[in-house]
Deep mutational scan, measured.
Amino acid sequence: CHSECLGNCSQPDDPTKCVACRNFYLDGRCVETCPPPYYHFQDWRCVNFSFCQDLHHKCKNSRRQGCHQYVIHNNKCIPECPSGYTMNSSNLLCTPCLGPCPKVCHLLEGEKTIDSVTSAQELRGCTVINGSLIINIRGGNNLAAELEANLGLIEEISGYLKIRRSYALVSLSFFRKLRLIRGETLEIGNYSFYALDNQNLRQLWDWSKHNLTITQGKLFFHYNPKLCLSEIHKMEEVSGTKGRQERNDIALKTNGDQASCENELLKFSYIRTSFDKILLRWEPYWPPDFRDLLGFMLFYKEAPYQNVTEFDGQDACGSNSWTVVDIDPPLRSNDPKSQNHPGWLMRGLKPWTQYAIFVKTLVTFSDERRTYGAKSDIIYVQTDATNPSVPLDPISVSNSSSQIILKWKPPSDPNGNITHYLVFWERQAEDSELFELDYCLKGLKLPSRTWSPPFESEDSQKHNQSEYEDSAGECCSCPKTDSQILKELEESSFRKTFEDYLHNVVFVPRKT
């Protein structure tokens, strides 16, 4: 048989008469490798580009789960590009990614509803959504962080984005990388972005840091009482949809009607710091009717980097990364020049730590249904340095008659930039024990000054392991946590139920 035959053949030295091919099969003959313009397919066939392209389009058009959109890589027609490569849609070739590779997620039936953290986790790592997304989240724990972890990498949506009755959302900033909504599939009414009845939605994105392009379709905003109209108009300008909307697409009466839409800028007039305090004062603000001013709200939190936005980490279910302080308005003076500047002394802060701070007014709604208010920009203030805590785990070892090696770990709280350490030492008198000992005694162990690591005695271990207080009263049991108490109650309830079950099964009433 021919060298490319495997198993047997019907005619000697003829690659077209093989029972099976050793390498690849091409047009009725066995070959060692697939010549151009053919590609290896499933490690035994040679196919042309049209064959591989037909497989790709067949799966793409069917949208069946589990099928493969075949691509070409290293002269092979394979189910998908290997790690580190992405497909070129024009020629199906796998090309190296520039940075992290995109991950295209194809949605069944063309859309997916995100109504819980669990459903959001199914899209973790996706960068391109081939379909439409509907966000409908009523509640949950730590929602802002969970949504950002699972949806934060999405850069492109081919269909539309719909935010509907998501009472738990305060902001859409968890879509931190969303840059493009194509609108290839539109919501009824030709809408590519749809926001309806979101009672706590206050911000779409921080438009000073976020760009969003909507290729096709219109915007729809109705019944978002805490979303200011200025935020919607800003989205029109940034996304390129200005002029597409009709009169009733953006409701003037049901958007922002319960919001404090600040239209003035508060400026800080005085800032002073110490290692654990920050004193702030800002310019006074009074609405047209000074009785509408209820006070100020001061927001602050630790910020290692200057990239904080107002609604980071917030949701309507209680999660809030900001510390909020309510401040009463100052006494009002008739003389504008003698107006008191409101302020606040922030206490209990960490030394040498940068804080993000902003302040906003708290006002009631005027009778004319106009909203007044003022808010400052987010500023960054760093507390002063102070003395560091003591170095940890000092170790001293003498390696000769004239040297001592000293080692330690950095302090747990540096409280500033540590530039150097101060080492103090003092000579001590020799131990009298060394002169009084009889060095001729056998088995004498000389006193040693070398360091030995501390260890816990058996008594201390027994005390720590004991669940009861000892007789001397030195140790006591740790208080039980809520989960331990709940577990004990469940076990007790189970024992009672099981005992009742045994009584009912074992003891049967005697027939009379």
Rank of each mutant, 00 (worst) to 15 (best):
G373D: 11
S166Q: 04
E310W: 14
T113I: 08
K350L: 09
L252N: 03
E302G: 03
R291S: 10
K234C: 13
E148L: 13
S208H: 08
Q403P: 00
Q306H: 03
K301D: 07
I135Q: 00
K277Y: 15
S321Q: 09
F296V: 07
V325R: 11
S192L: 00
T371N: 08
V104T: 12
A374F: 10
N136I: 14
K360H: 02
E262C: 14
W282S: 01
F220Q: 14
Y160G: 12
M346D: 00
T309Q: 11
L186H: 14
A120Y: 12
D289Y: 05
P391V: 04
L212N: 01
S269L: 11
I327T: 03
S274Y: 14
L153G: 14
A195G: 13
L392Q: 05
N334F: 09
L392S: 12
S173R: 08
K407F: 04
G183P: 02
A385E: 04
L143I: 04
R281A: 09
S319W: 01
S274A: 07
G343R: 07
Q258D: 14
F358S: 04
F220V: 02
T361K: 02
I157G: 00
D115W: 02
S269V: 02
W205I: 08
W352I: 15
K253P: 10
A259C: 14
F175N: 00
N211P: 06
W344R: 07
P351R: 08
K301L: 04
P304A: 06
F220W: 08
T215S: 07
L151T: 03
E122L: 12
N141H: 05
L151H: 01
E302L: 08
Q306S: 12
S321G: 10
Q216T: 11
E187W: 07
C317N: 04
L298S: 01
L108M: 11
E122R: 05
R370K: 09
S132D: 10
L331K: 07
D312V: 13
N340E: 05
I379K: 03
I135R: 00
Y167R: 06
M235K: 00
K407S: 02
C261W: 02
I181Q: 00
R124S: 11
V128L: 02
A303Y: 04
L293N: 04
S333K: 14
S274T: 12
Q382D: 03
L298T: 02
K277Q: 03
W205V: 03
D393M: 14
Q354S: 05
N399V: 07
P288N: 10
I278P: 00
V390L: 06
N190G: 13
D326P: 02
T371S: 09
P394G: 03
R347D: 07
K242V: 15
N198A: 07
F290T: 04
R281S: 12
F299T: 12
L196W: 12
Y355E: 00
G217K: 12
K253I: 11
P284T: 15
I135N: 00
L147N: 01
D289V: 06
W322D: 01
V359Y: 02
L298P: 01
T127L: 11
L212D: 00
E302A: 05
A120L: 10
Q339P: 12
G140R: 11
T361G: 06
G313R: 11
T353Y: 06
P288A: 10
K242T: 06
T213V: 13
P391H: 01
T241N: 10
K162P: 00
L108I: 05
A168Y: 10
K253R: 05
R332S: 04
S260A: 09
F358Q: 10
C105R: 01
L266G: 01
L293Q: 08
T383R: 00
P288Q: 04
F299H: 13
I163T: 06
D328N: 09
M346N: 01
L161Y: 01
L229R: 02
S260R: 14
A144W: 14
E155R: 15
D292C: 04
K350P: 02
G139L: 14
S274D: 03
P284I: 07
C317M: 02
T254D: 10
K234I: 09
S171C: 15
S192Y: 01
Q245C: 12
V128G: 07
T213R: 12
N200W: 03
T353G: 02
F311K: 12
N399S: 08
A168P: 15
Y194W: 05
L151Y: 01
G139W: 03
C126L: 00
F175R: 00
Q354N: 07
D377W: 15
R164P: 04
N255G: 06
N224T: 03
R176F: 05
N190V: 07
G131K: 01
Q339T: 07
K177L: 06
T371P: 06
G183S: 06
K177F: 07
I327S: 03
K103H: 06
K177H: 08
I379C: 11
T309F: 11
R244D: 05
L196Q: 13
W207K: 03
L133I: 02
G110K: 11
L186A: 03
F299G: 06
E109H: 11
K112P: 02
G240P: 13
K103M: 10
S401M: 09
Y285K: 02
R138E: 12
K409V: 15
I129M: 07
E310F: 03
K409F: 05
T309L: 15
Q245T: 11
M235P: 00
T241M: 14
E122A: 14
C228F: 03
D115V: 05
I357C: 04
L280E: 03
T113F: 14
L151A: 03
D257A: 03
R247A: 09
Y305H: 05
V170I: 14
N263D: 01
L169V: 13
Q258A: 04
H210R: 05
G295F: 15
L172T: 12
L201T: 03
D312R: 13
Y300C: 14
K234P: 04
Q339R: 07
R291P: 08
S401P: 04
N150I: 12
F268R: 00
A195Q: 02
L204V: 07
Y167C: 12
R124V: 14
W205C: 04
P329F: 04
L265K: 11
G125S: 06
R179C: 13
S119W: 03
H106W: 07
Q199L: 12
I379R: 10
S173E: 10
L196S: 10
S338K: 15
S173L: 11
V128Q: 01
V363L: 13
G125R: 11
P410V: 15
D292I: 10
K253A: 08
T323I: 01
N263Q: 06
L123D: 00
L161G: 00
K209M: 07
Y300V: 08
R164F: 14
E368I: 11
A120F: 05
R369W: 09
A120C: 14
Q403R: 05
F268C: 04
F174P: 08
P329Q: 13
S274F: 14
T113A: 13
I232S: 02
Q339M: 11
